[in-house]
Computed example of a mutant assay.
Amino acid sequence: MTRTRRTPHRAGVRGPGGHGGGCIGSVFREGRFDDARAFSDRLLDRTEEVGLREQVRLDILRNQLAIIDGDRTTAVLNMERIAKQAQESSNVELSAEVWRALAEALTTAGGVGAA
Rank of each mutant, 00 (worst) to 15 (best):
Asp35Phe: 00
Asp35Leu: 08
Asp35Met: 03
Arg37Ala: 08
Ala38Cys: 02
Ala38Ser: 11
Ser40Tyr: 11
Ser40Asn: 11
Ser40Lys: 07
Ser40Glu: 11
Asp41Tyr: 02
Asp41Arg: 10
Arg42His: 13
Arg42Ala: 10
Arg42Gln: 11
Arg42Tyr: 10
Arg42Val: 03
Leu43Tyr: 15
Leu43Ala: 06
Leu43Gln: 09
Leu43Asn: 05
Leu44Ala: 15
Arg46Gly: 02
Arg46Tyr: 02
Arg46Cys: 03
Arg46Gln: 13
Thr47Met: 15
Thr47Ile: 14
Thr47Tyr: 12
Thr47Gln: 15
Glu48Phe: 06
Glu48Pro: 00
Glu48Gly: 06
Glu48Gln: 11
Glu49Phe: 08
Glu49Ser: 12
Glu49Met: 10
Gly51Thr: 12
Gly51Asn: 15
Gly51Ser: 15
Gly51Pro: 05
Leu52Asn: 07
Leu52Asp: 13
Leu52Pro: 05
Arg53Thr: 14
Arg53Leu: 15
Arg53Ser: 14
Glu54Ala: 13
Glu54Trp: 06
Glu54Ile: 02
Gln55Arg: 15
Gln55Leu: 13
Val56Met: 09
Arg57Phe: 12
Arg57Ile: 02
Arg57Ala: 14
Leu58Val: 06
Asp59Ser: 13
Asp59Gln: 12
Asp59Phe: 06
Asp59Glu: 13
Ile60Arg: 04
Ile60Leu: 05
Ile60Trp: 00
Leu61Phe: 05
Leu61Pro: 03
Leu61Ile: 07
Arg62Ile: 05
Arg62His: 10
Asn63Leu: 00
Asn63Ser: 10
Asn63Gly: 01
Asn63Gln: 01
Asn63Thr: 00
Gln64Ala: 04
Gln64Ile: 03
Leu65Ile: 06
Leu65Val: 06
Ala66Lys: 05
Ile67Asn: 00
Ile67Arg: 00
Ile67Val: 13
Ile68Ser: 01
Ile68Phe: 02
Asp69Ile: 10
Asp69Leu: 10
